[in-house]
Design a protein around this nucleic acid. Sequence first.
DNA 1: CATGATTGACTGATCGACCAGTCAGTGCAA
DNA 2: TTGCACTGACTGGTCGATCAGTCAATCATG
Lengths: 217, 217
Amino acid sequence: MGVAAKKQSEELSPGREKILGAAEQEFSASGFEAASMKAISTRADVSQALLHYHFGSKERLYAEVIRARSKKINDSRRALLDQVDFESDDALSQVLEALFRPALAPEGGGKAYARIFAGMIVGRAHDRELVRECYDPTAHVFLDAIQRACPGMGIEGAGAVYQFALGVLVSALSRDGRMERLMGHQGALLGDQILIRKIVTFVVGGAAALTEDRERL
Amino acid sequence: MGVAAKKQSEELSPGREKILGAAEQEFSASGFEAASMKAISTRADVSQALLHYHFGSKERLYAEVIRARSKKINDSRRALLDQVDFESDDALSQVLEALFRPALAPEGGGKAYARIFAGMIVGRAHDRELVRECYDPTAHVFLDAIQRACPGMGIEGAGAVYQFALGVLVSALSRDGRMERLMGHQGALLGDQILIRKIVTFVVGGAAALTEDRERL
DNA sequence: CATGATTGACTGATCGACCAGTCAGTGCAA
DNA sequence: TTGCACTGACTGGTCGATCAGTCAATCATG
């Protein structure tokens, strides 16, 4: 079968890492179905058979890519979340920044998050299982954090905010120049810092409105 | 080549309509790449060759599906938008309802919108062209409507609100039970009416926060 | 130290399955 | 009898996957 650590975490195998990188690029650019093992092997400059040697199947290679990327994103998210001051007035802003920044960061794989999200929309059952495995645990943590930051919001309120926040994140991740086109190229294309601020501001405002609406009942 | 209207809009061809319906289901369930012409023809209960007879290629069949669905959604959106009272306090709410309701309506194709959005995320160039053709004109109308409903928001503010609103919409369209799972099955699964209200409330709140933040500068 | 066995990384050739797309031909209605 | 809707049989190409075999490094043994 595949491979195991030589002794500990010594460099595993040069080919394996090359394949993972090439696969992430290819899957990210084309999606699971459209990305071919041949294209991945070409990009990685290894034989196509090596992909099966290391990962067994295209499905498993894909899962490994998602696992690796989600680990980085989630580690970063949790680290940021640990620094949040829940006594602060803008606790929710800090929580949301911890949620958004790692996904939007250039080294964060950028579209990796958006891609798997897209896979879910499209209805791939495997993607749903991967989300459960890779993202659910951290999602629970953030659900709790949102509730801590917004007392009186309730579990279903936090759920709604989390879900909507992810939607906003994906819309931001999929920036492809459409907005600039629609606006007739007015307005400067904003940098990452400003974009994050806008997203956070938007979601915080939405969350407040949701809480207000709830209390009005 | 394909087909043209017999005289006007007399029922075109029974097979053609069956194919369009089956194709929409299949594309919606699996995405463009994973959906096969054979699966579509089987579902439509016609020969596979008939798909090429009517539409020429898989790509063109897909485009026809998107065109048909987007036309229904956009017609409905514009009709709703015509009824908006821009003097009202909740003009933005009305505009957003006009944007959301047709996409979330059961007969609105539901996931049709989410699917093409997913295609864009995944990076299919063809999807980008389709969006431009099918959704950009109506998007301009809504961009203007948002500005009318929110004076002092500016073009880039309206653009951000529109973009984020679509993100929230997609997150709502892709409901697949994940939230219920994350919340431990607390909280009732909300009906469409309540969901729309929540989305609208959220986006209105976000838009207000964005405007506020802008004015603070 | 020498040497044969073993192992893991890796490849080229090749497989059957399935894909979108083609085409000659059938039946039916005007 | 012309034209349109439609089909069955087929094609070339690409897909993921398999497998026998190469090669270098490691290890066991005398």
